[in-house]
Amino acid sequence: MQDAKRRFEARGIKLAAISYDNTEILKEFGGRFHIEYPLLSDPHSEIIRSFGLVDPDNGPNNLPEYAKKDMALPGFIYVDKQGVVHEKFFGVRYFDRYTANNALGKLFPELLEASGPPIETAQFKVIVRQSDREAIPGSRVTVMLDVILPKGMHIYAPEVKGYKPVKLVIDSLEEFRVKDSKYPQPRIKLLPAIKESVPVYVGRFRIAQDLMVVPSRQLMESLNTLGKGREFGKVFNIHGHLQYQACDKTTCYPPAEIPLSWQLRVHQYDDVRASEKIQDRPNQ
């Protein structure tokens, strides 16, 4: 989050966080992780409630036994200078959490760092990006492709008929669930030679794919054996490929694929409790 803070601030956006903890707990927590942005205390969940963000699923299965009810649903909102809500990022359930860098990438995709050097094919160039290099179980991260086509070249968009549409395919991995994918609006191109109008991408376009680290018991147990905290963790190699068919003014090239990969280190949650003297919910 501290890293995301720096990148948000470069865009004139400040970062804050809110929970139902008291200020003493937040002070201790902020000190432990060197958090400089404001951690707001909403001890009776009044603000969280007024925003409609109390987790509706505060059942016994998703809370530690010492926790009180009315926790916030984890997620982000982006509010402009006039106080108007512009974007919000909430998962379907409490364990499905956008990372700060994922939210940042949705607001400013160009800020996401490249995962490696650009991939050059015979017809175009691809920049592979990812929102995060580290995650915890439940994190929702983004992998992203910037496809840069030279003038006169096009790639077929997902709705095309009769040609191979572009598709980002992520290989199945037990620890990850493929979530929302985002393809831009295509342009409709008239192909005079065959008198057809087809949806295509030209110039530069971006494909984004969310992936959630599945917080399965098996993953939790395997991470627990490694140890808790950021210094421990397990590296996952996520593989996939980009399917496409590219054409220029004279040639339609055969459908092809580009192999892709991303690396993500997953570590266990930090579940250290606040000092006993400042806890407002003692262990039961």
């Binding site: 970062l15 200020t23 205390s41 982000f76 982006y78």
Partner: peptide, 26 residues
């Protein structure tokens, strides 16, 4: 906040606004 400062939408905003993280508990 954790430093004892009173905050609201005006104090939190930057030139382009602010992002607020909702989290379960510290």
């Amino acid at each position: 906040d954790q430093f004892g400062r009173e905050q609201n939408a005006e104090t939190l905003t930057g030139s382009k606004g602010f992002v607020m993280l909702f989290f379960r508990s510290a």
